[in-house]
């Protein structure tokens, strides 16, 4: 834990993917968990929106003392006021989820905040290993469970990936006892989104394999032909040594062993 560090976690309201019930946003909760690991209960947790939102109590239930809420109406551009507040507070590390679970969910917040403050943005963070001498060692999550080591100078913005540690359980009692700081902030209207039309999403159709046949015979063949299992190489009579060698060759070709 690093007591002298100023860490801020940005949280939003999440939504269950099937039931639509409001809940902690998963990645934001992971960001809070990462912040708790770095900074303990003194972590600053910031939300821009309504302070009366019951979901905020769930975040508090993870053992936080307080949440700061920048009071903003539903359709507002929160980036400007938020950056102003973050600048005032002298934050050094800003943690946020990669993507929101409600609304537009473009995943732009970390980049917009980073751009506005002029800080580097590290995406898809799985863990922050250490912060020392004004430099942080970060593990970035790559596809297929791989990790990359990055070094960044403070201050920076980090978007937290699903690969980060799972958030601790939220307890009801501490959630009710936690304090919610209300901060008044300027309101910038988001005019562009007023003209958008929103409809409930329908399931997207899967792409069909269309047969592009030039002649009737080809079309007939495509319609009637059984998909012939290409059937790979079968090594039956060879000695186990040769068989094992064939497997090693294939693994080498795929670059899975050196």
């Amino acid at each position: 834990m690093l007591p002298e560090l100023k860490v801020v976690a940005l949280v939003s309201i999440g939504q269950h993917i099937k039931s639509g019930r409001f809940q902690r946003a998963d990645q934001d909760a992971r960001a809070v968990e990462l912040g708790l690991k770095l900074r303990g209960v003194d972590l600053t947790v910031l939300h821009a929106g309504s302070a009366d939102e019951p979901v905020l109590r769930r975040y508090l239930g993870a053992g936080l003392k307080a949440i700061t809420v920048l009071e903003q109406p539903a359709k507002a551009d929160i980036v400007g006021p938020m950056c102003e507040y973050l600048n005032e507070q002298g934050a050094q590390i800003i943690l946020a989820g990669t993507k929101a679970e409600c609304g537009e969910a473009s995943g732009m917040i970390p980049y917009l905040v980073g751009e506005r403050l002029g800080w580097p943005v590290v995406s898809r963070v799985a863990d922050i290993l250490s912060v020392a001498n004004g430099e942080a060692e970060i593990l970035q999550a790559l596809p297929r469970g791989q990790r990359r080591l990055l070094k960044v100078r403070l201050p920076f913005v980090a978007s937290v990936d699903n690969a980060a540690d799972a958030p601790r359980q939220s307890a009801f009692g501490p959630g009710q006892r936690g304090h919610i700081h209300r901060v008044q902030a300027a309101v910038v209207a988001d005019e562009l989104s007023a003209s958008w039309t929103q409809v409930p999403a329908k399931k997207r159709p899967k792409r069909l394999a269309v047969v592009k046949a030039k002649s009737a015979a080809d079309r007939f063949k495509a319609a009637t032909a059984k998909s012939q299992g290409a059937g790979g190489v079968v090594l039956q009579a060879e000695a186990p040594r040769e068989q094992a060698q064939a497997i090693v060759d294939l693994l080498l070709e795929e670059g899975l062993i050196q």
Binding site: Q15, H16, I17, G20, K99, A100, E101, C102, G103, E104, A105, S106, G107, M108, W196, T197, Q198, V199, P200, A201, K202, R204
Partner: peptide, 23 residues
């Protein structure tokens, strides 16, 4: 982001949690 129906005039994209389509 997550745009899936795009023409030079109108674009439809998926909102958060795959719950809304925004045009």
């Amino acid at each position: 982001t997550q745009a899936w129906q795009v023409s030079s005039e109108k674009t439809t994209f998926r909102g958060g949690s795959q719950r809304t389509d925004i045009c």
